[in-house]
Design a protein around this nucleic acid. Structure first.
Lengths: 211, 211
DNA sequence: ATACATAACATAGCTGTGCTATGTTTTGAT
DNA sequence: ATCAAAACATAGCACAGCTATGTTATGTAT
């Protein structure tokens, strides 16, 4: 007998190729089907099943990839001395990501969320929570402010705006309401109105409502 | 010859039956396919093509139906002497509709909006615009308030919250953030903070964050 | 080096999808 | 009663995702 015999292993590169190709096809608006996904490549349809268990698993992995890219974008927001500005910048980065990859953004929130995806969403939310926490410690928000709640509220505002614009009926300039909404939220959470307006304006990167 | 001969007409009842059945299947989470939609009825698959031109047209009509039902629900909010309460009540009705019919709500905002759907969305938004306009005339908001903008902002807040809850990763109690967000928005638009809080609390119908 | 159990991979065919083609029936103004 | 037109019924098409089955590559133990 050969007891410890172990079989051929999955090639992680194949998995990576598949989701990157899927993301690219999503961006170029090509229909993503089992066969179209592997057409022209050296991979066969079975690769989708060995690596994802089927097309549903592939879409799930693609959602995960979307959250990973979103996280990378949020990570690029470097914390400054002004945590209110930072939270605004994070929201702006969130909007920018959704506008740059509207189809991927839709896929991320389209499907029935399962536990794994919810965790991915929570992970990106954590960036906002940290900024909210720093704002509370800096005395910008009331002492009894719950950072998770403020982060969730900011997220809801951002998601509402951008989903109505990126994949909804509202025109792009509607995003210009972002600063007002964020200022209203942060002010209601305890920040000084004038100071808040300045911080939000500094954190609100240009290139969203324009072009 | 028989020049003015006119052919058989479409039976509106068939169209109604189809979309009502589709709405029911959506609610009961049955997969909606061309064949499953007409299975067990006296209608054939061709009915979908004569009345909607295909499944895409059926989905479009279903979206329209969703907006019609939303409009009916918003129409049930009877204006009171307090327009801020009324706007809150409209937002609450919007949330209630989405929570009662989450799958229909998703269909409404899922697909690529075309002109017709955008018009339907605008029509329901008009309810909010009217309430905002009355609030401005009543002196609750600043005189330079744009009712359409305030309505849009209220909509964005409501949509962000409810889409993250009804079809997203956030738990239902997250909706309890609604009053704070609305109060923040209305206060930023000029309403007196204390008075606003009261109005929002009166307009915020129970039975949302609970059960 | 060789054997071989295992799983990745390749291919063909299955069911079910929306849609179209074609024939039949119903309609309603003449 | 006539008959053109459109609604309706049926069958079959291409393509979707998936599964069954045979083949190949792999990595450990001999």
């Amino acid at each position: 007998m050969y007891p410890g015999v172990v079989a051929r292993r999955k090639d992680p590169a194949v998995r990576t190729q598949l989701i990157e190709r899927a993301a690219h096809m999503l961006r170029t608006r090509e229909p993503i089907t089992l066969r179209s996904l592997v057409a022209g490549t050296s991979m066969s349809t079975m690769a989708v099943y060995t690596h994802f268990g089927g097309m549903d698993g592939m879409w799930k992995a693609l959602r995960q990839e979307g959250f990973t890219r979103l996280g990378a974008r949020l990570a690029q927001v470097t914390p400054s001395a002004d945590p209110v500005r930072d939270l605004t910048a994070l929201v702006t980065a969130y909007l920018g990501n959704a506008l740059d990859h509207p189809d991927l953004y839709r896929v991320m929130f389209d499907a029935n969320f399962d536990l794994e995806d919810a965790q991915a969403a929570d992970d990106t939310l954590e960036y906002l929570v940290q900024a909210a926490e720093r704002g509370r410690r800096a005395g910008r928000y009331r002492a009894d402010t719950n950072p998770l709640e403020l982060a969730t509220q900011s997220w809801a505002v951002a998601h509402g705006l951008v989903s109505l614009v990126a994949t909804g009926p509202l025109p792009r300039p509607t995003l210009a309401h972002g600063p007002l909404l964020l200022t209203a939220l942060f002010t209601a959470t305890g920040d000084d109105p004038d100071r808040c307006r300045q911080s939000v304006e500094q954190g609100w990167q240009p290139g969203l409502a324009d072009d």
